[in-house]
Design a binder for these strands. Sequence first.
DNA 1: GGTATATTTGACACGATGTCAAAAACATGG
DNA 2: CCATGTTTTTGACATCGTGTCAAATATACC
Lengths: 199, 199
Amino acid sequence: MRPREFDHDEVLRIAFDQFWRKGVRGTSLSDIARDAGVQRGSLYNAFGSKEALFLQAYERYAGDYLVGLEKTLATGSMRKRLSAFFDLTITNFRSGSPPRGCPTTRGLMEIGAAEGEGLDEDARKAFANLVSRITGLVQDALSAGAARGEFSGDPAAAALHVITVTRGLAVLERAFDDEPQLRKIAAHTIDLVLGKRGR
Amino acid sequence: MRPREFDHDEVLRIAFDQFWRKGVRGTSLSDIARDAGVQRGSLYNAFGSKEALFLQAYERYAGDYLVGLEKTLATGSMRKRLSAFFDLTITNFRSGSPPRGCPTTRGLMEIGAAEGEGLDEDARKAFANLVSRITGLVQDALSAGAARGEFSGDPAAAALHVITVTRGLAVLERAFDDEPQLRKIAAHTIDLVLGKRGR
DNA sequence: GGTATATTTGACACGATGTCAAAAACATGG
DNA sequence: CCATGTTTTTGACATCGTGTCAAATATACC
């Protein structure tokens, strides 16, 4: 067998960076090939198609992300954990210049739009999987303390609400580009879920 | 002057339907031209470009949407109005088969992804404008009654929270395709904002 | 060293966006 | 009624992107 001349993981990283910055639609395989110093044909041979490449790049990223998130959510009071989660979320999708947005949300909206089904189901599963795992981690964090807010006794519902808000923030971020506002919404949501601080 | 052979508004409607069903990326101007019985070149002449056509189609839709929303939010108790808003929202982006998703959210994510700026600012303004106006209507609805929940006395913050949740639902909808879950989140959010029913 | 196997490479087909000039259709004024 | 001017329509074209394929190439293994 002839060995591969490029680093599989490195290409996934480069590709994901481009997809994140310019969107799936705005990134051509020629761009990625040039950036990675790889022939375009080799990408097709190794990954199958543009969407498939994006999905693999995304899943690699998601793995890294989950590791970081788990560390972030490991210790501290419930309020500290929730706060850290929102902070990580907002910082993440406001990274870059201009802000690259939330890769999960953008991916979900850009992929699976065409008429044919095919890979779309895989794509949705990939995203649904990440969202589920994030929700699970948040739920664990919320179970770790005694909830006093509206959701006390139902950490699953609380986590789902928190995730919904973070997804909403990912959308608003693209409409308004107003970070303080995002953080205010986040703070308010924490109060809603945990009860007002010092109440 | 030679008169136009097609109905400008009719074409915008047809184009928006395609964009909504298949996404901007998944819709070609040839598709729209065929569907509308218009030459592709005429579309370029009349609308400028694919993105410009999408934006104009979107703004036409947004106008209709706002009229309907205003009617929906006009009367009833605050809880009834909020409930109606969530219902309209979820029903709207779960319409079609398969569900077409939320056109605003999908548009926001698909447009303005490329490197160059140009039209992107216009696009963001169009979306930001709709989101602002929806938020305003919700805020008015929330001001119409005496709020008892966490947000009492701050209808602006309450409306912003509600909008954030609806944007989040638009994302989750695409990941999970689970309408009952969406409605549960909506119901919970109403309780959070207005206080639990019968409390 | 020879062979099997996977990768690389370049050419190709196809479809999409966007441009352009020529043709066509109407409004307007004589 | 006809000539003129303006806008739309129409078809051809250039360019780029995706995806396919066969031939060439490089290695591992026997």
